[in-house]
């Protein structure tokens, strides 16, 4: 992010800046940096039956990187990210381009209709879809019966990740679409006019002008999706009740950290797992940034 791009300001007003930024900074330090520091400190200890809490250095982290349950969870959300996010962003991009193209009737209705699921809490989304997926009385199964085919067992082992991916896509495609659509709105009209004069149709304008112009906004969506995928919690936590044998307590890393902290009372280890998860998300985010902003070779 180009911090240096800001225009130079009057230096004499300098100290008054603190009037404006201090409230935010105080909250930031107390509610953001301090919890992280405290949890980082806790993660270096271990609660033992004999001897109480003892300093163990990086033992919790060494244990975490060898913890098969954690690794399985991380791999699962990584797979989820690789498949769900491209589908979701393609849907979002298609809707944003269609709404922006001027070729669509009732464009405003489509934009709002696709966006509305974002205002639905993930708890409600998971409850709804969980019911819709139901193998006995779910409307999708009923629909399949009426049309004469057997619906797949959407809450079964082989479909679960796809079913969760569908819930997340449903919730967040509209949000990403709005970000992309807002970015499209700021592309100067002159560029379209010039291309149209040259005889480019709407599809070519979309491909050659609009999509390249959307690069920064797409990147923003991608980064948010990394964060969203790797910290998946509410959806599997609620679907777990419907399919307890498919979703176990370490299905995603966040479910695992939650069960460590609150079911098995391993607070110190849970702090280490939270930290490690945050670290993984940072690494993946920066990897995505590096891969997508890499300059093409000459």
């Amino acid at each position: 992010m180009p911090l240096s791009a800001a225009a130079p300001r009057r230096p004499q007003a300098g100290n008054r800046a603190y009037l404006f930024i201090t409230p935010f900074l105080v909250c930031f330090v107390l509610l953001f940096l301090l919890p992280l520091a405290y949890a980082g400190y806790l993660s270096l200890f271990k609660d033992q039956l004999v001897g109480g809490t003892v300093f163990v250095g990086l033992d919790n982290y060494l244990r975490a990187v060898q913890d098969a349950r954690l690794l399985d969870g991380v791999l699962r959300v990584a797979l989820f990210f690789l498949i769900q996010v491209p589908i979701m962003l393609l849907v979002a991009l298609a809707v944003a381009l269609a709404v922006d193209s001027g070729l669509l009737r009732l464009a405003n209705m489509f934009r709002l209709g696709v966006f509305i699921p974002y205002a639905v809490p993930s708890v409600v989304a998971a409850l709804m879809w969980g019911y819709l997926y139901g193998p006995d009385f779910g409307p999708l199964t009923q629909l399949g019966e009426r049309l004469g085919f057997a619906a797949p067992r959407l809450l079964g082992d082989s479909w679960m990740l796809a079913s969760l991916g569908n819930i997340v896509t449903w919730e967040f495609a509209g949000y990403n679409m709005i970000i992309l659509f807002s970015a499209l709105r700021t592309v100067p009209v002159e560029r379209y006019e010039a291309a149209a004069v040259d005889g480019a149709g709407p599809w070519r304008i979309a491909w050659h002008i609009k999509i390249p112009a959307l690069r920064p906004a797409l990147l923003l969506c991608l980064i948010f999706s990394v964060i969203g995928s790797f910290q998946l919690f509410a959806e599997p936590n609620l679907i777990q009740r419907l399919a307890p044998t498919v979703i176990d307590s370490s299905y995603t890393p966040n479910l695992y950290a939650y069960s460590l902290a609150f079911t098995s009372q391993q607070v110190n280890y849970a702090a280490a797992v939270s930290f490690l998860l945050g670290f993984v998300i940072l690494v993946v985010s920066y990897a995505v940034l590096l891969l997508t902003t890499r300059r093409p070779r000459r």
């Binding site: 919890p35 964060i227 945050g278």
Partner: peptide, 15 residues
């Protein structure tokens, strides 16, 4: 911005 809110939630709970 990239620090996930849920990775922050357990630390906040501990504090």
């Amino acid at each position: 911005i990239m620090v996930p809110t849920t990775a922050l939630a357990i630390p906040t709970y501990l504090l």
